[in-house]
Amino acid sequence: MKRLKLPPWLVLLLPAILILSAVVLIPLVLSLYSSFTSYRLTRPDSIFNWVGLFNYEKAVTDAKFWAAFGRTVLLLTVALNLEMLLGLGLALMVSKVTHGQRLLRTMMMFPMMFSPILVGFQFKFIFNDNVGLVNNALQSLGITDRAIPWLVDADLAMFSIIFAEVWTATSVFGILILAGLYAIPRDPLEAAKVDGCTSWQSFRYVTLPFLMPFIYIAMAIRSLDVARAYDIVQVMTNGGPARRTELLWTLIGRTGYVDARMGYANAMGYISIFLAIFFTVYFFKKLTKSRKELGMGA
């Protein structure tokens, strides 16, 4: 009897292939498939109800979806830029400190050590209009005598979410940019001084180009992070009030698990992933380019 003989490379790869298909491939295919059905969690047999591109058409014509999409892009743009500026400032200051720099570096990482859920609860409390820290402080300082509805007013709620997001993640930029600052060779900076640069000009023309790759790495990491933002928003405002802080993934989560329309949620999910992919690819392109400018390989 002849036994079936697999080529050795396949045998060796088989465990990896099996695990990957179990945890990645099958869920991916299943979710992609279900986005073409009217699958509802409450009626499992609906997964066989093929509806073609119906879910996708519905999503791209859904004003609520595009509002959430726009809000996510807004959050991404504002939060990333703020984090970058603050992180840069922080890193520059820490790098100038002569004593206790190690301690400061550790402290810089503190916000990253908390679960986003906890951060959400913390800021939900801080911005609470009755018992919150901010309103209490403002009132006792006599700056206002009203209870400012931080988490209820649409603009203020968005502001509060961005604030919380920036608080947690500025250190990502801070740490990466600090690493960049340590990696800058001393010579070109000294050459710039001799060439007549003020400290601002040295920063602008020498330090910054050297930091750009680090900034783009942080951007790529954070754009993925923010594009899938869910936890902080879910906890702080639950996408409300009246969907005024609804982001892509809070909307998708609600559609999938609360409304139980999983097929539709998956369709929106697949569209949303393009957002994340787009930003990541964009920042990686920038990263490669800035590295090339510095002559650091392709």
């Binding site: 070109p188 000294e190 050459a191 640069c197 180009p209 400018e293």
Partner: peptide
């Protein structure tokens, strides 16, 4: 340095790589 009207050539060239 910028007010001293000097210029310097460094051992490791110290060119601006970008």
């Amino acid at each position: 340095p910028r007010e001293r009207n000097i210029s310097m050539v460094f051992q490791n060239y110290a060119l601006y790589p970008h």
